[in-house]
């Protein structure tokens, strides 16, 4: 499916802000295409299901998070159309969440491979994934203080822990 068809289909089904980014490479100037789609939180799960209409197994890469002060934007990076020369398209789906209500549905029921990324965003940014069963720490230690989120740009950032590597626990020492 080409990008125009995907854009058309998204516009038919969703209220979305779509941006297509193109960049050419090499002597032959072969163009790669990336789609940035910003949608409402209510439509998010429906959008992920819509990706399954384009491809049987849409590839999920990662969730990236940006702190805008009052709100946090989660950008889910998907790609569809592997297996042919220059056939793959990146589709990045952005959802904005207000800081007082950081909740979004999990997609691990549809794409089990998203587990690591959801656990990471849960611990690093403090977003609650509704329906996510495994919410243990992935990258931070199990005794990490609650309510501290290293990737936020507000008071929840653990600034008191910066540059204190010498205070970390060593084997044989009491905590």
């Amino acid at each position: 499916m080409n990008v125009e068809d995907i854009v058309k289909k998204i516009k038919e089904n969703f209220e979305a802000d779509i941006k297509v980014q193109r960049k050419s490479h090499g002597v032959k100037k072969i163009e790669e295409e990336t789609l940035f789609v910003r949608i409402k939180r209510e439509d998010f799960k429906k959008f992920v299901k819509f990706l399954f209409e384009i491809e049987k197994y849409p590839h999920f890469s990662i969730i990236s998070a940006t702190d805008f002060g009052e709100e946090i934007e989660l950008l889910y990076h998907f790609s569809v159309g592997y297996g042919s020369f220059n056939g793959e398209k990146m589709i990045s789906v952005g959802v904005t969440l207000p800081k007082n209500d950081l909740k979004i549905e999990t997609i691990t029921d549809l794409i089990p491979g998203a587990l690591v990324s959801e656990r990471e965003i849960h611990e690093m940014v403090g977003v609650e994934f509704i329906g996510l069963k495994d919410t243990r720490h992935m990258f931070l230690p199990p005794d990490w203080p609650e309510g501290k989120y290293p990737w936020r740009r507000d008071e929840t950032f653990p600034s008191e822990m910066l540059n204190k590597l010498y205070e970390t626990w060593k084997e044989g020492e009491k905590k």
Binding site: G26, V27, I30, E32, N86
Partner: peptide
């Protein structure tokens, strides 16, 4: 192959 960058498209 799927998303060529640098000179791989050529």
């Amino acid at each position: 192959q799927d998303f060529p960058y640098a000179a791989y498209g050529d």
